[in-house]
Computed example of a mutant assay.
Amino acid sequence: MANSTINLHQSGSQLDYPVDSNNLLEALEQHQIAVEYQCRSGYCGTCRLVLLKGEVDYLTQPLALIQEGEILPCCCKPRGDIAIEI
């Protein structure tokens, strides 16, 4: 995967998506960005974030209900540059 940039809307920060990250939640943790989570596998929805721009690919289909524009970072990776509300 080519390097992707994660844009954090509230702070204006731009982070590189580490190529060794298994998912977006792990990438955020590697940058010391705290995200609440419970299951880390798409069941509970606790880590739900709003995707403002870009697209993600799900590694496993989330079982938690998500609305249009929401993502579960525990089970997805960015498909290029993204912007999230955090």
Results as ranks from 00 to 15, higher is better:
Leu25Thr: 14
Ile71Ala: 03
Leu49Arg: 01
Ser41Glu: 14
Pro62Arg: 08
Asp16Trp: 00
Ile84Pro: 00
Glu29Lys: 00
Ile86Ala: 03
Gly42His: 14
Cys47Ser: 02
Pro18Lys: 01
Gln10Asp: 14
Glu26Arg: 09
Pro18Phe: 09
Leu52Met: 06
His31Gly: 02
Cys76Pro: 01
Leu24Pro: 00
Tyr43Asp: 15
Ile33Val: 04
Ala64Met: 06
Pro78Asn: 03
Arg48His: 10
Ala34Gln: 07
Ser4Phe: 04
Glu68Ser: 15
Ala64Arg: 10
Gln67Ala: 15
Glu36Asn: 12
Cys74Thr: 10
Thr60Lys: 05
Pro78Ser: 06
Glu85Ser: 00
His9Gln: 10
Val56Leu: 12
Gly80Phe: 15
Thr60Gly: 03
Ser13His: 09
Pro78Lys: 05
Thr5Arg: 12
Ala27His: 08
His9Thr: 01
Gly80Lys: 10
Arg48Trp: 02
Gly45Met: 14
Gln14Gly: 06
His31Ile: 09
Thr60Phe: 00
Gly69His: 13
Tyr37Thr: 10
Pro73His: 04
Leu25Cys: 02
Asn22Ala: 14
Ile86Glu: 05
Asn7Trp: 01
Cys39Asn: 06
Gly54Met: 14
Asp20Lys: 08
Leu52Phe: 06
Arg40Ser: 10
Ala64Lys: 14
Asn23Met: 04
Arg79Asn: 15
Ala27Glu: 04
Tyr37Arg: 13
Cys75Gln: 06
Leu25Ile: 08
Asp16Tyr: 00
Ser41Gln: 13
Asn22Arg: 09
Asn3Pro: 14
Val19Gln: 05
Cys75Lys: 07
Pro18His: 12
Glu68Ala: 14
Cys75Val: 00
Cys39Ala: 08
Leu49Met: 15
Cys74Ala: 08
Ser41Thr: 10
Leu51Gln: 10
Glu26Asp: 14
Ser13Trp: 01
Glu70Gly: 08
Thr46Asn: 11
Ser41Phe: 02
Ser13Phe: 02
Gln14Ile: 04
Gln10Leu: 04
Leu59Asn: 07
Tyr43Thr: 08
Lys77Leu: 10
Asp20Trp: 12
